[in-house]
Amino acid sequence: MYKYRWKLRYVYYLTRSKFRGYSAIGGAAQNRFDFDAFVSYADEDRRVVVNDMITKLEEQQGKQLCIHHRDFLVGEEIAANILNAVRNSKKTVIILSSNFIASYWCNYELNMAHMESLETGRNVIILVVYEHVRMKDIPDILQNFMKNNSYIEYTDDPQGNIIFWDQLITAINSE
């Protein structure tokens, strides 16, 4: 049971959402999503999401982001909201920081995005390194992801910042 805990949670909330009236993505509608990206971040790192991502991605690029403090359904379980956000978004953007690593719900979001990748065969995770974290503190799933995939590092440097946003937009647009 412990070994398959994330798979079991994923299947439980997926099945539960089908009985609660959420429409499942599948078949011809597989390429249609409610959101371009679900942003997974620790609440302590909200500044980068509210000040930067909403401005750069939603207002300037016309992307639709799913942001938990704004788009989760009130009265619904957090775990169900997370799975619905992951499933109804083309990509999941992980904002990696020490706060992210310490957060139970961020870990949950990461694992649900990982399960979505495995179940659908889609590469849904976009990793943004917001602050440098020691490799030994990073969860195994992210360590494996970082060893096998490209990721983007956030920067406040004006020149690097232009490159960062171009890379993030390209990653969100990719299949």
Results as ranks from 00 to 15, higher is better:
S117G: 14
S98P: 00
D45S: 11
R5E: 08
F164R: 03
Y154K: 10
S97F: 02
T170W: 02
N99I: 12
I126L: 06
L110K: 00
D157H: 09
E116I: 11
D71L: 11
Y4W: 12
D43P: 03
L65G: 02
L168P: 15
L65E: 02
L118V: 03
L96M: 09
Y2C: 04
G62D: 07
N173P: 05
F38T: 13
V124H: 02
H69I: 10
K91P: 01
E44H: 10
D36W: 00
V133Q: 08
G160L: 07
M1S: 12
N144I: 13
R16W: 12
S103W: 13
L8G: 07
Q61S: 00
Q60W: 10
L73Y: 12
N88Q: 15
G27A: 12
D140K: 09
R122V: 08
M112K: 06
Y154H: 09
H69F: 14
N84P: 08
I125F: 12
L83G: 05
E109Y: 05
I78R: 01
K56L: 12
W105Q: 05
N173I: 08
G21H: 13
F100E: 03
E44P: 01
E116S: 13
N144M: 01
K18L: 11
M112A: 09
I163G: 06
M53G: 13
Y104H: 10
E59I: 13
Q30H: 01
A113V: 15
E59K: 15
D43G: 11
E59Q: 14
I172W: 00
